[in-house]
Design a protein around this nucleic acid. Structure first.
Lengths: 138, 138
DNA sequence: TAAATTTGCTTGCGTTTTGCAAGTGCAAAT
DNA sequence: ATTTGCACTTGCAAAACGCAAGCAAATTTA
């Protein structure tokens, strides 16, 4: 199941071909906030993604090497999803989304705090966050 | 025709509710590159959006105040679409998409040049681009 | 000034994707 | 040995998409 049909050579278009839908970046968000997620973790998220859609998006993101599937240290029944470097590199983009949203929506207190930290020192915030995502990369 | 149903309070989710699809950011891209577009201009783009989809996305982006519809100075038969401030504020996000894509895809020469300029001075590039988009805002 | 063309859409319709619920198979716990 | 947990898969109705054709108003051409 490969979805690698490019509509054009435009980088915006090629990027949207991978994660340009309502769900993919929410999966990436969960992985940025939690570092590693099980299938069930994604289902627990506030937006209530349907399980078949989740499966298809995880497959797509894995095919495109944005996420990695690893065995869970606790049990063979569990799976651990993590961001690859390609996924981690989406962090600056996610930061900009938060900044845009901060200007036009009301953010939950928790996220607002994060955005304020970004405003204080964007570059530092991003570097620190990326470094922490890169810990014990297995 | 209002599509303002929020899946959650998460800013990523709220943002995706507006432009989280395969086409909306391509419309925004066209407007960032051309400053103002007619309906026909969007249809001419490389990705070949279907006319009914284009109409629905323009409506959605207008409902959400990302774009503005103006009368064309040359003719009543034409319409001019432009970015609102809210749309212009998506520019830093678009820059990050280009940077991400530059790392993982091969960019067309023209766009590659732009990305190199961004790498030289991101903040300056963004400020200059935004200033130029804000000229004669009518 | 009548006819043809341009422009910005809308409509119909078959195909694909989504969303919801239920089901399946393997692993682990009881 | 049976129940529970986990990661999916399947079925199906509803919505969204994509393509082609149609349409009304404005403009250009003959």
């Amino acid at each position: 199941m490969k979805n690698l049909k490019k509509r054009s050579e435009c980088p915006i278009s090629s990027s949207l071909d991978i994660w340009g839908d309502k769900w993919s970046l929410l999966i990436v968000r969960d992985l940025m906030l939690l570092k590693a997620c099980t299938y069930g973790d994604f289902l627990k998220s506030e937006e209530k993604i349907a399980t078949n859609i989740l499966a298809s998006r995880l497959q797509m993101l894995e095919d495109n090497e944005v996420i990695l599937k690893q065995e869970h240290p606790d049990s063979k029944a569990k799976v651990l999803y993590k961001l690859s470097q390609k996924g981690i590199d989406l962090f600056p983009l996610m930061v900009e989304i938060n900044l845009w949203a901060d200007k036009y929506f009301t953010l939950p207190a928790e996220r607002k705090k994060m955005v304020e930290a970004v405003k204080r020192d964007k570059q530092g915030f991003i570097e620190e966050a990326i470094a922490s995502m890169q810990e014990q990369p297995k």
